[in-house]
Nucleic acid binder design. Structure first.
Lengths: 221, 221
DNA sequence: TGTAATGTTTACCAACCGGTCAAATTATCA
DNA sequence: TGATAATTTGACCGGTTGGTAAACATTACA
């Protein structure tokens, strides 16, 4: 008898595990580049090196593939924020958070783009996950940052917008990679690019642009 | 005789001008939400309120529509950076640049998303424009920023990454709007959101997170 | 007004889309 | 080994895609 997907109570075959991995890898490649609607099953099948019906044997629909992929990526994508430690030193925590997010942008740009594509197109499939788990996690960490600010360990600021700005600046190097390369030119596109970005972002977030000789000459509004 | 598009030497009709505007408006709506491949001509035609063949009478192909749209948007999108004035006060220039970019993210989110979609998908149609006009403009402004840093008017920093970080933080509020709303919840999704973001970004870029009482206690690396 | 250019629509096409089906092939294990 | 279940494939389907042809309607203007 044909079991299109492994029955619920049955454990997965070795082949199933391998092929599903293979498919999700290919799906990541294609979805991250074209978004959900722009990606085609044929294309994913070709990248995965198997026939379309074979692919659809493991994931019955294009949407099921996308869902599986998004869920997995979203989970690992939030790891750096989870590690954000309330007990640690604020400066060290923020610096290492920036560094980790930047490393993820460098090492997993496709995951970043997949996520960006999804959000950009209105997040039709993960709205619940954004309003649920994501919001809870951010709320929790925002409270930590706020307590640091209240204790005078860092400047007073809106913790949510701080988190947004760390997300956006770091992910920019994955999502807008083409633009970054085009602007920097070939000379600066090498490995140094990553270190330059890290150095700048640490400076920006920890020290700001203020000239240190004139402590408070620059007010705001 | 049928002239699918206005002949080169002929000036454009009133109807031509109106309809092309109407089409590009609809195209912006659809392309910005689904990207190039994800958008369909039928959909654009429906939003524009005309039949598909009629639409294709003004823009012969989907790609021509997209190209016309991207070119126009890219041009106005760079206006704020063009206004960046070498003669002005660094603090005032940076602050007003942030403010203007943020206003554009608020008032023209579709334009921002269109651009983000294009870059995200590898910028197949505007690579030349990125490496040409865009790079030139950024190079020019980066030189200004560097001269400010050399003159001690602002802290020394990589001007390119500074520009990237202003782009990313401000455009984040347009491109990732769904996520921002989900995280902030309904209470903070109103008009105050914009002002909060503006206040935070000005603080971040002009003052940094440093506590002023201990001027240089926070080193980097 | 007449008429030629411009604008619009209906009907249509070939290619491609996501997905199905039944037959063929391969792995598993008593 | 043999039989049963798991995997793979080619052929195919109805719907959608970008785009075309030609008839029809409207505008601009002498």
């Amino acid at each position: 008898m044909v079991l299109p997907r492994a029955a619920k109570t049955q454990r997965r075959t070795r082949i199933q595990e391998e092929k599903e991995e293979q498919i999700l890898e290919a799906a990541l490649e294609v979805f991250s580049l074209h978004g959900f609607r722009g990606a085609t099953v044929d294309q994913i099948a070709e990248v995965a090196g198997m026939s379309k019906p074979n692919l659809l044997y493991y994931f019955r629909t294009k949407e099921a593939m996308h869902r599986a992929l998004i869920t997995r990526v979203l989970d690992t994508w939030l790891d750096p924020l989870r590690e954000f430690d309330a007990e640690g030193s604020p400066v060290a925590e923020i610096r290492s958070y920036i560094r980790r997010k930047l490393e993820m942008a460098r090492d997993f740009p496709r995951e970043s783009r997949l996520f960006a594509n999804e959000i950009l197109q209105g997040a039709p499939n993960i709205e619940d996950e954004l309003k649920g788990p994501l919001k809870s996690l951010v709320d929790e960490k925002a409270a930590v940052i706020r307590s640091w600010a209240r204790a005078g360990k860092i400047a007073k600021c809106d913790p949510y917008h701080l988190i947004f700005s760390i997300w956006s600046t770091t992910q920019h190097y994955a999502d807008f990679d083409v633009q970054v390369r085009a602007v920097l030119g070939q000379n600066q596109s090498g490995e140094g690019r990553f270190e330059d970005a890290a150095r700048f972002l640490e400076q920006l977030f920890l020290n700001g642009l203020e000239v240190r000789d004139q402590p408070s000459a620059i007010g705001h509004a």
